[in-house]
């Protein structure tokens, strides 16, 4: 039993010396490079994941922007088409109105002209009838009636004619 619990300063000192050698040799040549490599790998993986996440976010953003742009362009196109239709409709109405107004004017003018022409023709006919009647009456009753009598008679006759 004394053997098992014997103090052995020699073993303690050898343990320290050996441990320090292990610590110095492996500390510089094995543990530190390995810990650094593991930390570096860990950081590299984490950064790569973060970058991938950021890239995906950016791609999503670009895609949504693109979608918004397409939607906006579609809406604008629809607006342009709608505006074109409106303009065409308005122009059609304007043209129709204008044409109606113009044709109404032309019609009115034509009617006025016709009326004028008719009045003129009637008065011409009247004059000619008077002349012809006078001439005829003159020939028939050239001596029996004076000129004043003839005119009076003709006027009376014409008055009747006008009434008829």
């Amino acid at each position: 039993m004394e053997n098992l619990l014997r103090f052995d300063t020699g073993l303690m000192i050898w343990t320290w010396i050996t441990f320090i050698i292990v610590l110095v040799v492996l500390g510089t040549k094995a543990w530190k490079p390995m810990i650094k490599a593991l930390e570096d790998r860990e950081n590299f993986i984490r950064e790569s994941l973060e970058e991938a996440k950021a890239a995906r976010k950016e791609a999503d953003k670009v895609a949504s922007e693109y979608e918004a742009m397409v939607a906006k362009a579609r809406q604008e196109a629809q607006e342009i088409v709608a505006a074109g239709k409106d303009t065409a409709e308005r122009m059609k109405t304007e043209i129709l109105n204008e044409t109606q107004v113009k044709s109404a004017g032309i019609l009115k003018q034509a009617e006025a002209q016709i009326t004028t022409e008719r009045d003129k023709a009637i008065s011409e006919i009247r004059t000619q009838i008077v002349d012809i009647s006078i001439a005829a009456a003159e020939k028939i009753i050239v001596k029996s009636l004076s000129r004043e009598d003839n005119e009076r008679l003709i006027k009376d006759a014409l008055k009747d004619y006008g009434q008829n």
Partner: peptide
Amino acid sequence: HVLKWGPLVMSFFFL
């Protein structure tokens, strides 16, 4: 503190 104390702790464990 891993890099500072790692060598000691690793040496303990492996030895």
